[in-house]
Design a protein around this nucleic acid. Structure first.
Lengths: 172, 172
DNA sequence: GGGAAACATTTTAGGCTTAAAACAATTTGG
DNA sequence: CCAAATTGTTTTAAGCCTAAAATGTTTCCC
């Protein structure tokens, strides 16, 4: 009896009292919009880095991590911070060592560990790129008021926590 | 005299009256947080798609576009919608045609154009995946209240508009 | 009509990315 | 002590992705 079914579904969607196929369209739209924003900005930054400095985004990101760590980082550290796979970092580091931006040495205390640092050249180039990069980002977010920025920061922090909790539920 | 300099900088950062090297650290932090959220969720979705359905995220995304277009789409349409390069779509479509999920034919009216559609198999598989996918997304955003979701939607719409405007300024 | 511009797609070359397996070194627990 | 588990990195195989150049087709407009 379709009529009865319709009633039940309407009731549910209004009151959230019953367990039936729920509507998660809002969350889905939110996710797509989040993804759109990120893709848009990421593509813009990628293009500007390439045009202005002939550098790729992953290389820039890796250098950004190292700039914050004057004593260097292990490959695992970098991999966790950048949220990419280990093997990915291996290749990235290889190319940046090759181009003279990174210094890589085996730890004295643990011969499994590779410690990487920015070279003088690498640091200088990164600083030069980073200051321009910061103005790009400011420009991309220019229409947001300081209040918007604060509110977004708060909601994204909540989003991040929610997603981490959900991920942990599945992989305890 | 460093003391004087400090005063000027503090004044500026408080009042925004003078034009000096401005501080865009807040926007930068916002961008990094946005990127973190997306990377986190995207990685989670990618992993679940692989484990549950042995499908990649780009394939799923492409099928999602086609599911909304019963009459098919051209490769250019897909490329614009997915915000990826043309060449990328060519390869993706190739593999999905090969696996029987997509049907590709040259347009009768314009022989430059390739029109792609989901096959029966492709549509069935996509629907099966999509309904589960929707629950994953809902779970990942579970800690956000309906008000949070609305507010995020609003702020991300503003962000998207701002970024598009900034991109257009560069590439008119 | 015909050449130039615009458009849709593919190709190319190179880099990024992942998951999984392999390898190497250290730590741990009996 | 030493075998087993753990940890850090690299390798492998496959796929994703981009920018730029090349190819084929249509449209524009003189």
């Amino acid at each position: 009896m379709p009529a009865v079914n319709d009633c039940i579904e309407m009731l549910d969607s209004e009151t959230k009292a019953v367990e039936t196929p729920e509507d998660h369209a809002e969350e889905l739209r939110l996710w797509l919009r989040l993804l759109t924003c990120t893709t848009l900005i990421e593509g813009e930054v990628r293009g500007r880095l390439r045009q202005r400095f002939d550098v790729t985004l992953p290389r820039f990101d890796l250098m950004a991590q190292l700039d914050k760590a004057p004593d260097g980082m292990t490959l695992s550290d970098v991999s966790k911070r950048m949220m990419v796979s280990n093997g990915n970092v291996t290749g990235l580091v290889e190319r940046l060592v090759e181009s003279g931006h990174l210094d890589r040495r085996t730890s004295e205390t643990d011969r499994r560990v590779q410690v990487i640092r920015l070279t003088k050249l690498g640091r200088a180039e990164f600083r030069r790129m980073a200051s321009e990069h910061e103005t790009w980002i400011a420009d991309l977010f220019a229409d947001l008021t300081p209040k918007d920025v604060r509110e977004l920061m708060r909601l994204l922090a909540k989003t991040k926590a929610s997603a981490q909790k959900s991920a942990a539920r599945r992989r305890p």
